[in-house]
């Protein structure tokens, strides 16, 4: 027990996490590339046409993974924030900051692909229903987090302020998820959920899940790349940076 705790804290210090992250990046980056290629192959070439929406439904292969990731990433940020506020580890603030831009990108892609899907199928680029509005709020929360952090020069205070925003904002994630059940929305219900069998043909489901895994691997690789940059920027003058960075 005490042994594993020591190990955990060892990797919570930037000096030892930096090289570990560097070793992990190639694995996750290649996993993202391979899974992405398989997912695109299934989704664009192999999956059948949809009975209702024809070929237009293929947007699902990027829309759903991007939307899922935008919600997951926020949850992970909230997790790191809670950890950072509780244990005051430097790594947690850096991890939260490293995840935010990627989460914002996915929230944006979710809205963008959703608009491109909504126009031909529903007949509108955008409607103010509960699902779309709460997803827009998520995008604003990411932007707010990034703006807040960049406005504060002292990294420790920036981390603290960001952590509070991330923790308060996480309430929005279940609102997004359950919005289609709680309120009348134009957006349809979930095709894949834990409470019922997926309402999709197998090939379509397989393509979507492989794409989701690819997005996961991408997010991990990118977050590790960014956290390494943040570590170097914040600790430029420390000894370990001089030892490590030039390797």
């Amino acid at each position: 027990m005490s042994h594993s705790l020591v190990n955990w804290f060892k990797y919570a210090s930037p000096a030892s996490f930096y090289p570990l992250a560097g070793r992990l990046i190639p694995y996750f980056a290649s996993a993202a590339a391979v899974l992405g290629a398989i997912g695109l192959w299934i989704g664009l070439l192999f999956a059948p046409t949809d009975a209702q929406q024809g070929e237009g439904y293929r947007i699902i292969f990027v829309h759903v993974p991007a939307s899922w990731m935008s919600m997951f990433v926020y949850c992970i940020m909230a997790f790191w924030s809670a950890l950072g506020l509780a244990f005051k580890t430097r790594l947690s603030g850096m991890m939260t900051a490293a995840l935010a831009p990627t989460g914002a990108l996915f929230a944006f892609l979710s809205l963008w692909t959703g608009a491109l899907w909504g126009k031909p199928m529903w007949g509108a680029w955008w409607v103010w229903d509960a699902r779309l509005t709460s997803q827009l709020i998520l995008f604003f929360l990411y932007l707010g987090f990034i703006a807040l952090q960049s406005a504060i020069d002292d990294p420790r205070r920036a981390d603290k302020a960001g952590a509070l925003l991330a923790l308060v904002g996480v309430i929005n994630v279940p609102i997004i998820y359950f919005s289609v059940q709680w309120w009348n929305t134009l957006h349809q219900g979930a095709s894949v959920s834990m409470t019922k069998a997926p309402s999709m043909a197998h090939t379509m489901l397989a393509g979507m899940l492989v794409m989701a895994l690819a997005f996961w691997a991408y997010t991990i690789a990118i977050a590790l790349m960014r956290v390494r940059c943040i570590m170097l920027e914040r600790e430029l003058s420390s000894e370990w940076v001089k030892r490590n960075a030039t390797e």
Binding site: G54, G56, L109, L116
Partner: peptide, 16 residues
């Protein structure tokens, strides 16, 4: 051509 949905499908995949 994507069954007439080319703009929407490629617009989504392209942005991603």
């Amino acid at each position: 051509h994507m069954g007439g949905y080319a703009v929407y499908v490629w617009g989504s995949f392209g942005a991603c």
